[in-house]
């Protein structure tokens, strides 16, 4: 099991940095194609939530990512240093078609094999994902199209 720990400041530019570093890690483990895309999408959605809703773009607050990869699965955790993140998740409403936001949680659920939202001891939000390493990733998406 290979384990990676990454910490990012809560500024918009961090998302690009995170995606670049994630790409390098996934390619190192021969994860390409649709699974690579699904993991990148899901982590970017969680990262944006942590950045905007959790840490409220406060550069003094960090976003912490833990990634664990073996031959059968990829597990990821993303934590923010905000407050009441779990309440935000529970209160959220489905977006209107013309809404500019509110689609991230749905995409996380559709493109991962499992997702769990928990609160950290300091009140931040931790989102945990699991992705199965099938020969060719079949996301949950196909049943919705």
């Amino acid at each position: 099991m290979a384990v990676y720990n990454m910490i990012y400041s809560s500024v918009s530019e961090s998302e690009e940095k995170m995606l670049d570093e994630l790409r390098a890690i996934l390619l190192k483990h021969d994860i390409d194609g649709s699974l690579h895309y699904a993991i990148s999408l899901v982590l970017s959605e969680a990262f944006t939530n942590a950045l905007v809703h959790g840490n409220k773009k406060d550069p003094r607050r960090n976003i912490i990512i833990k990634l664990a990869i073996n031959d059968t699965e990829v597990c990821a955790e993303i934590e923010d240093e905000g407050q009441h993140g779990l309440e935000y998740i529970k209160r959220r409403q489905p977006p209107d078609l013309l809404s500019e936001g509110g689609r991230g949680i749905d995409l996380m659920e559709l493109y991962s094999d499992s997702v769990e939202f928990t609160e950290t001891p300091t009140g931040g939000l931790k989102v945990s994902f699991q992705f199965s390493r099938k020969s060719e990733k079949e996301t949950n998406v196909s049943k919705y199209i």
């Binding site: 999408l41 970017s44 959605e45 500019e100 689609r103 995409l107």
Partner: peptide, 13 residues
């Protein structure tokens, strides 16, 4: 090469 919900939101806007 990549779009997420923030990118979609920008297009909707």
């Amino acid at each position: 090469e990549f779009i997420n919900s923030s990118g979609l939101g920008a297009l909707v806007s």
